[in-house]
């Protein structure tokens, strides 16, 4: 949007040990403040790509440029510390970021309020529903205060009603904070609902197989006709990619 590049991936390849190529010649540029959805079937290396961007793994060939501050990551499972309350979980991220003790509590409560969980601040993860846990995880990721937020199928395990609400929540947070978001999913509708750009990855090895840009993103809902239309188009391409594996 602002024209600055947040993530630049060039001719990226990845294989694990002597195994087959997982990612092959992936080229992708994400601009600052952009919301990009990475979409693909199983085995397309979506999560591998995300781990590479997050710096949790190293590329075999090619290069990845990410902001020096690094990226915050959110996983499919909330991975909250079960012995800490929601507030303390957020405070842990603040502590590891180096926020002084006195400022942590207030900032954590503010972040929890951002995801509408101020009332649940003193609850422990097991007392929260799956959707609430993912919102705490989102607040924790925001607490890291990194310009890039990587999300690895964060809503895949949630029921449809909760997922709808979290889409809205995430979109609101994105517009408010101006974060660059890379959102990995295998759900075509979710990608069409959320992304400014949808990048389709082919499977085995993962390559960029198509890309869609959505000009107008405000006011989208999962049931919006434009989301449905885009989903049909993407699904067609996705099926073509999957069918190639049959031969």
């Amino acid at each position: 949007m602002s024209g600055q590049t947040a993530i630049r991936i060039e001719q990226l390849g990845k294989r694990f040990g002597a195994g087959p190529l997982v990612l092959d010649d992936v080229n992708l540029t994400v601009e600052a403040g952009e919301f990009v959805c990475l979409l693909g079937a199983s085995g397309c290396g979506k999560s591998t790509l995300l781990n590479l961007i997050a710096g949790l793994d190293r590329p075999t060939t090619g290069s990845i440029d990410v902001p020096a501050e690094g990226a915050a990551v959110m996983f499919q499972e909330s991975a909250l510390m079960p012995w800490l309350t929601a507030r303390q979980n957020v405070e842990l991220a603040l502590r590891l970021r180096g926020v002084p003790r006195a400022a942590r509590r207030g900032e954590a409560l503010e972040l929890l309020d951002t995801v509408n969980l101020a009332d649940a601040a003193e609850k422990r993860p097991h007392e929260l529903s799956g959707g609430m846990r993912q919102r705490v995880a989102l607040a924790r990721a925001l607490a890291q205060d990194r310009p890039v937020l990587l999300m690895d199928e964060p809503f895949a395990a949630l029921d449809a009603i909760t997922r709808d609400l979290l889409h809205e929540e995430l979109e609101r947070v994105w517009r408010r904070t101006g974060r660059t978001i890379v959102f990995v999913t295998h759900n075509v509708r979710e990608a069409a609902r959320l992304g400014q750009r949808v990048v389709l990855l082919s499977s085995r090895p993962g390559r960029v197989a198509g890309e869609w840009r959505i000009a107008e993103t405000a006011g989208r809902r999962i049931e919006s006709p434009e989301v449905a239309a885009l989903s049909i188009e993407i699904t067609e391409q996705l099926r073509k990619e999957i069918r190639r594996n049959a031969a």
């Binding site: 890309e211 869609w212 840009r213 188009e233």
Partner: peptide, 18 residues
């Protein structure tokens, strides 16, 4: 990404048509 030919143009149309 930058030039946004075919693919991108196609998408914004159903968007407004919808």
């Amino acid at each position: 990404g930058r030039v946004a030919p075919g693919e991108a143009g196609r998408v914004s149309r159903p968007d407004s048509a919808g």
